[in-house]
Design a protein around this nucleic acid. Structure first.
Length: 426
RNA sequence: GGAUGGGUGCCCGAGUUGGCCAAAGGGAGCGGACUGUAAAUCCGCCGCGUCACCGCUUCGUAGGUUCGAAUCCUACCCCAUCCA
């Protein structure tokens, strides 16, 4: 394990990694730098297809891949269709449930769609990203052959020193043989990619360190004398916010990249609501603004940071959802939170009703500004709700089409919720 | 398998001589004020409802005693530590 040397790396890609904050540690910093300097390098990142959407917590890795691809290197995205049926025990305190093939395939498709926002897969360039499913080579493995060829290179003595296994054993939480094999399979993935796709670098979160190193060692042992047998890995930092929480988690749940789960407007708001202390860091990691520009945006501090946050939110939203969505979100945010009256870009809620009580509106399942009527009543009475800019403290107030002033009603509930409501019986 | 301690609201954690307990305190969260859609601070809320002092459902699960139970009894489940 090496930390980056004091001197600057030679490759643009690694330079970017360092200055933007994607780098944590590497197996051999100088060798990776050399490989990146030499020309197009192939690297890979693995994903567990256990969910159908990525969230902001995954985004550092995505941005890092994007940076490397922009620097001319070739990403391979492994979707762990094979390993998902085993389950990575890393960072998990419990044995996880297994997924069906159909789920895995659907999740893989969703993953590819989201990554396509950040990486090019089909541009025709030599460094187009490639997505592979490790089920393609893992499922056909034959047990005895695998044991003889791969298993012989691993010692139990060494394997149980890996932190993720160590922790499980120390805590005496059952670690099944199935899960124990995860490391071998991931190492085998790396070997497969090394041999068949010329992949020499893997990166991932620091919880993947042990698995990645296992791959490097396997490759070294399996490579005949005289052939280049080096592979490398590096880890990305786990981001936390200034108040010590994991990036991308809010009380309302994860910050999803899927617009069906989290509309662009809310995605934009997530970024703009960040802590002052995090702005510069977030701009470096989640946007592609030049470092000098970021410095200029954030140098004044104080209220001037709001401009930087707006830029952060805009850029981050643009990368994920495109320019149009980003502009819409920006316009909507300025109107809704800046006291504007033109809410045409603000998210809307259409009600096919003649009338609705304020308390019912605010707890409407699609809005859920407050999670129960009891809470809603209290908040309304505390002055949390404004209708068309007017404070309304009567939970029983009845709203009709007349309140929409011909178009829509501007509802603000608490600090975050801004919705354009139309009440119109069909 | 045996012994002991323990399971309380989102989390931590009081409460177990039965009523004053919807349950102290802290944290998180939410709302308001102040600000800059930030932080800090202050005030308020923080089980649910057709809701000010009313009703309903909560203190591992299921029964029981009692006018009344988180608090007592019985069985069961789970957790921690120690012994075998």
């Amino acid at each position: 394990m090496q930390v980056p040397p004091a001197h600057q790396p030679k490759s643009p890609a690694l330079t970017t990694f360092l200055e933007r904050g994607y780098f944590e540690q590497a197996s051999d910093f100088a060798a990776i730098d050399a490989a990146m300097t030499a020309g197009m390098m192939t690297f890979y990142v693995g994903y567990d297809p256990t969910g159908n959407s990525l969230h902001v917590g995954h985004l550092v890795q995505v941005m890092a891949m994007r940076a490397l691809q922009r620097a001319g290197h070739r990403p391979i995205v492994i979707v762990g269709g094979g390993t998902a049926s085993v389950g990575d025990p890393s960072g998990k305190s419990e044995t996880r449930k297994l997924l069906s093939r159909a789920d895995i395939e659907a999740n893989a498709a969703a993953l590819r769609a989201q990554l396509s926002q950040f990486l090019h897969f089909d541009s025709g360039a030599p460094n187009d990203a490639v997505m592979l499913d490790n089920a393609d080579w893992l499922l056909e493995l034959r047990y005895i052959d695998f044991l003889r060829e791969i298993g012989r290179h691993f010692t139990i003595n060494r394997m149980i020193t890996v932190k993720t296994y160590r922790d499980r054993l120390d805590a005496e939480i059952p670690l099944s043989f199935l899960e124990f094999n995860y490391q071998l399979l991931q190492a085998y993935d790396f070997l497969h990619l090394f041999r068949h796709h010329g992949c020499i670098l893997q990166f991932g979160g620091s919880d993947q360190w042990g698995n990645m190193v296992a791959g490097i060692e396997l490759i070294r042992r399996m490579t005949p004398e005289g052939e280049p047998g080096t592979a490398h890995c590096l880890t990305l930092p786990l981001l936390t916010t200034a108040d010590g929480k994991k990036m991308g988690k809010t009380e309302r749940g994860a910050v999803w990249l899927d617009p069906e789960r989290l509309p662009p407007f809310d995605y934009y708001q997530y970024w703009i609501g960040c802590d002052d202390r995090d702005v510069a860091k977030l701009l470096r990691i989640f946007t592609e603004l030049p470092i000098a520009e970021i410095a200029a945006l954030t140098q004044d501090g104080g209220a001037a940071l709001n401009a930087a946050k707006a830029r952060l939110a805009y850029e981050a939203t643009r990368l994920l959802h495109g320019q149009e969505a980003a502009e819409t979100a920006q316009t909507a945010a300025r109107q809704a939170f800046g006291g504007g009256e033109d809410w045409s870009a603000v998210p809307e809620l259409n009600l096919d009703l003649a009338e609705i009580k304020l308390i019912d509106l605010v707890t409407h399942p699609e809005l859920l500004a407050f999670k129960s009527k009891r809470e809603a009543r209290q908040r309304i009475e505390q002055g949390a709700v404004k209708i068309n800019g007017e404070l309304c403290i009567d939970p029983a107030r009845v709203l009709t089409a007349a309140d929409c002033g011909g178009a829509y009603l501007r509802l603000q509930a608490g600090k975050k919720t801004r919705v354009r409501v139309t009440i119109l019986p069909s």
